[in-house]
Computed example of a mutant assay.
Amino acid sequence: MAARRRYLVTYDIRHAKRLRRVHKTMKAYGDPLQYSVFLCDLSAMERLAMTDELSGHMTLDTDSVVIVDLGATDLTRFEFIGTRNLEPPPEPGATIV
């Protein structure tokens, strides 16, 4: 099983159409903390796929995405005050549908 790492991803997209595409892409990879801030638990391949997909939706000379590696997913790095508004992260391993 591939090791998963936790990432904090935030973005500043300057055009509404690109912003919607980036937001939709990020919802496929993580949980929103705020509209343009996501918490993602990703394998190395998922991270690569995410960055590739995001850059395809961006204008690289005006838009920006910041990806912060928070380390292994088993470490607690966040404390929430008030509502968390997040689903618990998925358990590692295969999901059978």
Score class of each variant (00 low, 15 high):
residue 1 M to P: 14
residue 2 A to E: 13
residue 3 A to P: 14
residue 4 R to T: 00
residue 4 R to D: 00
residue 5 R to D: 00
residue 5 R to S: 03
residue 5 R to K: 12
residue 6 R to A: 10
residue 7 Y to A: 04
residue 8 L to G: 06
residue 8 L to F: 04
residue 9 V to E: 01
residue 9 V to W: 03
residue 10 T to D: 05
residue 11 Y to E: 07
residue 11 Y to W: 07
residue 12 D to G: 03
residue 12 D to Q: 04
residue 12 D to W: 04
residue 14 R to S: 13
residue 16 A to M: 11
residue 17 K to C: 04
residue 17 K to A: 14
residue 17 K to W: 06
residue 18 R to H: 11
residue 18 R to Q: 07
residue 18 R to C: 04
residue 19 L to A: 02
residue 19 L to R: 04
residue 22 V to Y: 09
residue 23 H to M: 14
residue 24 K to N: 15
residue 24 K to E: 15
residue 24 K to P: 01
residue 24 K to G: 10
residue 25 T to F: 05
residue 26 M to R: 00
residue 26 M to N: 00
residue 26 M to E: 02
residue 26 M to Q: 00
residue 27 K to F: 04
residue 27 K to E: 05
residue 27 K to T: 04
residue 27 K to R: 13
residue 29 Y to E: 00
residue 29 Y to L: 01
residue 29 Y to T: 00
residue 30 G to H: 03
residue 30 G to A: 03
residue 31 D to Y: 14
residue 31 D to F: 12
residue 32 P to Y: 08
residue 33 L to P: 02
residue 34 Q to S: 07
residue 35 Y to F: 15
residue 36 S to G: 13
residue 37 V to F: 11
residue 38 F to S: 02
residue 38 F to M: 03
residue 38 F to E: 01
residue 39 L to S: 07
residue 40 C to E: 02
residue 40 C to S: 13
residue 41 D to H: 12
residue 41 D to W: 11
residue 41 D to V: 11
residue 43 S to L: 03
residue 43 S to V: 00
residue 43 S to A: 05
residue 47 R to V: 01
residue 47 R to M: 06
residue 47 R to H: 07
residue 48 L to P: 00
residue 48 L to M: 12
residue 49 A to H: 12
residue 49 A to G: 11
residue 50 M to Q: 02
residue 51 T to I: 09
residue 51 T to Y: 08
residue 51 T to G: 05
residue 51 T to V: 04
residue 51 T to L: 15
residue 53 E to Q: 14
residue 53 E to G: 10
residue 55 S to G: 10
residue 56 G to W: 12
residue 58 M to G: 02
residue 59 T to C: 06
residue 61 D to A: 15
residue 61 D to E: 15
residue 62 T to H: 09
residue 62 T to C: 06
residue 64 S to Y: 09
residue 65 V to I: 12
residue 65 V to A: 07
residue 65 V to N: 06
residue 66 V to Y: 07
residue 66 V to F: 13
residue 66 V to S: 09
residue 66 V to A: 05
residue 67 I to M: 08
residue 67 I to P: 02
residue 68 V to K: 00
residue 68 V to G: 02
residue 68 V to E: 00
residue 69 D to E: 10
residue 69 D to Q: 04
residue 69 D to L: 07
residue 69 D to C: 05
residue 69 D to R: 06
residue 70 L to F: 06
residue 70 L to C: 08
residue 71 G to C: 07
residue 73 T to L: 06
residue 74 D to A: 03
residue 74 D to Q: 02
residue 74 D to I: 01
residue 75 L to K: 13
residue 76 T to W: 12
residue 76 T to V: 09
residue 76 T to D: 08
residue 78 F to A: 00
residue 80 F to Q: 12
residue 80 F to W: 10
residue 80 F to N: 11
residue 81 I to A: 05
residue 81 I to E: 15
residue 82 G to F: 12
residue 82 G to W: 13
residue 83 T to I: 04
residue 83 T to M: 10
residue 83 T to A: 09
residue 84 R to F: 02
residue 86 L to Q: 13
residue 86 L to W: 15
residue 86 L to V: 11
residue 86 L to T: 15
residue 87 E to K: 14
residue 87 E to D: 12
residue 88 P to S: 12
residue 90 P to W: 10
residue 91 E to V: 09
residue 92 P to W: 12
residue 93 G to S: 06
residue 95 T to I: 15
residue 96 I to D: 04
residue 97 V to Q: 11
residue 97 V to D: 12
